[in-house]
Structures are given as structure tokens and as C-alpha cells.
Design a protein around this nucleic acid. Structure first.
Lengths: 183, 183
DNA sequence: ACAGCCATGTAACTCGTTACATGATTAC
DNA sequence: GTAATCATGTAACGAGTTACATGGCTGT
């Protein structure tokens, strides 16, 4: 059984369909992605969710249960096998696109005022993002014991929380270093 | 002076041209990006470097000094102004694409063996990446005092090093948690 | 002479986005 | 009735990649 060549986001969406035996609409799938997956992958556009679902169906990785106007999708047996196979695939190194760090790098083209404002704004966004993720983490804690449905999502959420904490620390430290430079 | 609408990578490359008064070829610019910028932005393909340079020139943000077969580019006065203006632009939140965390999220579709192997492999890649960045950091330290050319790149490199350290800690912690689950 | 690096591009393609369009259902 | 949400798509576009092609220069 050859692993179909699909973009990672396809497998990510397939993965979201692999919790429990739920049947989801494209709309619901998009919501799940927005809530959880966006923290360490992406939040795909609505239109992409539909086109990926179409493709997953063409590859018979999902089954369609057209009950009424809302098309519902569920993982097929083949989809489950493919997902298992894919998860053993080399993961590759994370890609980090950090517009704050990028601007800081060319700090000589800016000024202290602007840079400090940027870092402060970033700190605030970190706080709200962390709070959002913490909320998710709390919801998952209903079934996050080893073997339960949301055990692994719980691990990943903790990973994300630790990451946000680390970012906060580094940003604060950098702010302090900028202030020292002023003197 | 309206800020031209260009992708961030354009400004990133423009930023790389703003250190010192150097004139760089596309080839050299690509090397710089590979060495430093890739850690918090991207390493653009060679072909993209050339097309971006072409576009930057069309916008008169760089000047071309065609000395011989190798075309050399340097920041124009206009380019410097635009870069300054861009750096005060809202930065947006970092995007993190983390294939390891993504696979861990659907850990239920995998097995302990595979997951531990994945995290261990990631740890090793973290070590080499950190070492690469540390090497860059050391090179920068020749001129990283406040006011010197590589002060800000130094700050950003330290940011990246702290990030790698944080990732190492989280990964190790997650590995321990996986082992506890086994028992 | 030959390998390896320097140097520059073109063409085809995919991923993913935004803008647009449509209509059904639900809550108030 | 009317606003918000649910639900599904199409079309155009842009960023960025890989594969391909070419050729000069440099060290051994």
C-alpha cells in the first residue's frame, strides 16, 4: 500500500478526523483546526478545507455520509491505515517564521522606541495566545490520561504552553537588554 | 512615500543588504540567508533570490553595479528609507509549523516505538542546529557591542539559541512522559 | 583535464490565500 | 423578519519550490 503523495495539511486534517468515530462537516473540521491545530501547524482557509476533503475522498481516505444538506466525513479504514503509515514518516525540522525576530535583526534600520513598542505588543499577543491554548488544555483534561482519547493532544498542548512561556521569557530578556543599551 | 506592497521575504533580503555598505551578488545573498536568516525566517530558493532582486530593482530599492559577469546589488537611498518604514509596520504573530508536534498529536495512530524514535531524532537535529547557530553567534561576537554592526543580529541569535534550548527541554520532558505512560 | 564552486536564470507546478457567491437554518 | 451562524463551493492570484539549463572561473 503506497503512501499517497499529499501535502502535510491533508494528513493533518485526516488526523483531526481520527479522534473517536465522529463524522464531521467541513465547517466543523475547520473549527477544530482553528482551535487546536493552529498552534503548531496552520489554520487552513475554509476553501482549502473543502478542497482537501475532496481530495481525501478521491483517494478514498474518508467516507462521505451525505445525510441532508451537510456533507459529513469520516475516516475510512484505508484512511486509518494510511495515517498510521504516514505517522512513521520522517518528520522534518520545524519551520519558524518569526516576523518580530526578523525586524529585530535589522534593528539598526529602526529606533529604540519602535523596537520596544514591537516587543511589548508581542508580549501582549503572547499572553492572549497562551490563554487561548490554556483554555484548550483545560478542555482536554477531561480525557487526557494515558490511553484516553485526548492524551496525545494534551501532551502537545503542554508543549505549546511551554513554548509560549519560553517566548515570553526571551522577549522580556531582550527588552531588558535593549533598555540597558540605552544607558 | 508609500510603502511598496512586497512579500516579507523581499524586505528580509533587503534587510540583509543593509549591513555595512556591501555590494553582494545574488549568490552571496543566498549564502547569508542560509547562514543566519533561516533560523527565524526562511532560506529562500536560489531562484527566488534572483527574482526578488529583480523586483527590488524594479522598485528602485537596490542599485545594480554590473562589474563583470557577476551582478552586484547594493541598497539604494530609497531602499534604506523603505526599510526603515517597513520595520515600523505591525509585525504579526510568528507562524510555527512543527511536523514533530503534529505527528505527536495523532500519537494514537502510531506506537510508542515510533514516537520515541521520532522525538529522539528530533533531539539530535536540535543539537546540530543549535551548534550551527552557536557558530554564527561566535562569528557575530566580533562586532556585537551596542552600536556596532552586528549588535541586533547578536540579540536575535541569542533568541534563537534560547529557543533551541527550550525545545530541547520540552522534547526531553515529553520523552520522559511517554516512558512513564509505558509503565 | 576535471571537479567543484560561482553565477544566473526559466518553466512548470503546488500550496494556500483572498474575494466572491449562494443559500439554508437557527435564535431572537 | 432579520441577523448570525452553518454550509459549500469557485476563481483568481501570489509565494515559493523543484527541475532544468547554461556557462565561467578556480584549484589540483
Amino acid at each position: 500500500m503506497a503512501l499517497p503523495e499529499l501535502p502535510v495539511t491533508s494528513f493533518a486534517l485526516l488526523g483531526l478526523l481520527s479522534f473517536g468515530d465522529e463524522e464531521l462537516t467541513g465547517y466543523e473540521l475547520k473549527q477544530r483546526a482553528d482551535i487546536t491545530m493552529r498552534f503548531y501547524w496552520v489554520a487552513p482557509a475554509m476553501s482549502q478545507v473543502y478542497s482537501e476533503l475532496k481530495r481525501l475522498h478521491e483517494h478514498r481516505l474518508v467516507r462521505v455520509t451525505g445525510s441532508g444538506r451537510a456533507t459529513r466525513y469520516r475516516l475510512s479504514a484505508r484512511g486509518r491505515r494510511v495515517l498510521h503509515e504516514w505517522s512513521a514518516t520522517p518528520a522534518g525540522f520545524p519551520v519558524w517564521k518569526h516576523p518580530v525576530a526578523l525586524r529585530l535583526m535589522i534593528g539598526h534600520a529602526s529606533d529604540q522606541e519602535t523596537l520596544r513598542g514591537m516587543l511589548t505588543a508581542y508580549l501582549e499577543e503572547l499572553v492572549t495566545s497562551r490563554a487561548d491554548l490554556q483554555e484548550v488544555r483545560t478542555m482536554l483534561s477531561a480525557a487526557d490520561a494515558p490511553g484516553e482519547t485526548y492524551h496525545f493532544p494534551g501532551l502537545v498542548a503542554d508543549w505549546g504552553l511551554a513554548h509560549f512561556d519560553s517566548e515570553r521569557e526571551i522577549t522580556e530578556k531582550t527588552l531588558r537588554r535593549l533598555q540597558e543599551d540605552d544607558a
